[in-house]
Amino acid sequence: MVLVYIEIHQGEIKKSGLEAICFAAQIAKLKSSPLTALVLSNSDSLAGLGNYGVQNVLVANQNIDGSDSQNLCALISQVAEKNQANYIVLSNSSIGKSVAGRLAVRLNRPLVSGVNTILEEGGKLIFRKSVYSGKASAYYTSKNDKAIIALSPNSISPSKSGDSNATVSSVEIAVQPSKIKLLDRNLVKGKIPLAEADTVVSAGRGMKEPGNWGMIEELADLIGASTACSRPVADIGWRPHHEHVGQTGIAIKPNLYIAIGISGAIQHLAGVNSSRKIIVINKDPEAPFFKAADYGICGDLFEVVPKLNEAIRKFKSSNS
């Protein structure tokens, strides 16, 4: 059996969770084995996971907080053992990363984290991940055909594979009282977490001052993007720290990354070079970012961005 653990956020299956399901379904298909999903809380959409290849959904209705990796590991590993799961898939989120290593130890099997693709070579499942800050890929396989796989967000586009309902049942597993006491969880409201965003508009020191960010936010709103920034901009407090992308910030791989007034230093590129399409707006023709871009506009952002916003508004109104 293949087991996938998915995170539920405010009653909804997270996008990264759906990606994990579809990835697990690929493994299940290659192994001709059933797919079971494990969740921590009930959600209306669980039966519908059948459309994505899940046969059974197990709801662990107990008060485990996903951020307590000890308890989450106890839960997942016991379910995995009971159901003889050879492959366990989770998303490479902060929760996934904290528990994946534990599972590898507890269940004594290899972990491949940050996986973005699966292939089959000579009857073996091979998992690809990006290494050296996006400068290379590594391919791994498990010698005993058992593994923990932590899927990198935005690696696959979830798609339905059928139309049947999954069976939803509950599971009771005894765990120890948590050793971690959660005091506070503060989520930026109404925004897609950067790591999961499909589209990202990012700006850097070329913006001159924090008051100029209105046009960036407007562009982001117009195209449904999350906003990001370069490190110096976060360091001097122009933008919140959680927007900082790059080697020392968040690594992202959206479908589209628009970089505005960012030079494209190697440490910045390290966090964004896995983006599928990159558009760069910079007034310096020598800016290193152009070398990493798909499309470039060499010009003053204070002219280009407002013009672009205007053009998008026009396009939208004539197409609505």
Partner: peptide
């Protein structure tokens, strides 16, 4: 360990940036 590195690979070279008029 049971983890086996099959190979490393360098990514395909980007086809190059397409510059658009400003």
């Amino acid at each position: 360990s049971d983890l086996e590195l099959v190979r490393f690979e360098l990514p395909p070279v980007k086809s190059g940036v397409k510059m658009l008029a400003v």
